[in-house]
Design a protein around this nucleic acid. Structure first.
Lengths: 139, 139
DNA sequence: GCGATTATTCGAATAACTCCAATATATGAG
DNA sequence: CTCATATATTGGAGTTATTCGAATAATCGC
């Protein structure tokens, strides 16, 4: 039996969604990188345990370059300095577009899902017929 | 105004889904590569006009290596030779797993969508308040 | 013959993502 | 005091994924 656990069909990653997830968390309120990552791990794990934390920092940097978030250093506490991120109006516009995109994703997936289910059934009954035809010869 | 058309939030690609789309088309019946690509373009374009055709050929090759499909050359017609692909029982198992994965994707996206909508509203009313406070000073 | 259409394939470039390691500070255990 | 641990951020190297562009090839209409 073929092992399907390393096949993308196992669906361990759904990477592109990290970006709207970050925007969503920051739309709820300002947070520093580590807290964003923790929040995403806690609430939005899409089958995967831990979306790579360095990836989240990288996205935050990228999003700052693009003006979707702004950051400021916060040292008024114990522990290492925190880079606190806040969403901008541009970031909110981006999130609004993400919402439309996510709706399209969801609808596209639903459509594919229906097609896959119906095709799967069709193929299975076709294979059953072949097996019946060849019936007594095999095994 | 920032141009969001080249941002992934524009959602031009939803790449990983090409694989279950190929399996779905082949579960409906055997087809050669070009026909698979056309069918996918015709029915399953997720916002993008043409999912790269060479990518579809590449996936078909990969899927054959993995035993999900089998191919045979067909020259009984005009035009260049066609490599005809057929789904295997392994391929059907893979498609069955894809169906479960797609359900998880859809549910994950729905969850993110709800969070994004609520966070977006929250952030907007927060920004409105700030604008009211600073009201007369700006503009 | 020439261009358009159908059909497949390959190489190179780029983008995306992960893994690993480094740095830094505070806190609590021993 | 020192070591381990948790918090917090960053950078580099390597792998994989994906796209783009070009090459090849055969048939058909003009």
């Amino acid at each position: 039996m073929l092992d399907l656990s390393s096949c993308p069909c196992a669906g361990v990653t759904l990477d592109r969604l990290i970006q709207p997830a970050i925007l969503t968390v920051l739309a709820e309120g300002p947070r520093h990188g580590y807290a964003v990552a923790e929040e995403i791990n806690r609430r939005m794990a899409f089958g995967k345990e831990t979306p790579d934390i360095s990836g989240i920092y990288r996205f935050l940097k990228l999003m700052e370059e693009r003006g979707l978030v702004v950051s400021s250093w916060d040292v008024s506490h114990g522990g290492p300095a925190r880079n606190c991120y806040e969403i901008t109006p541009e970031g909110l516009r981006c999130l609004a577009q993400w919402i439309k995109t996510l709706e399209r994703y969801r609808d596209g997936i639903s459509k594919l899902l229906r097609a896959a289910r119906s095709a799967s059934k069709k193929a299975e009954s076709r294979m059953k017929k072949i097996r019946l035809k060849q019936g007594h010869r095999i095994t």
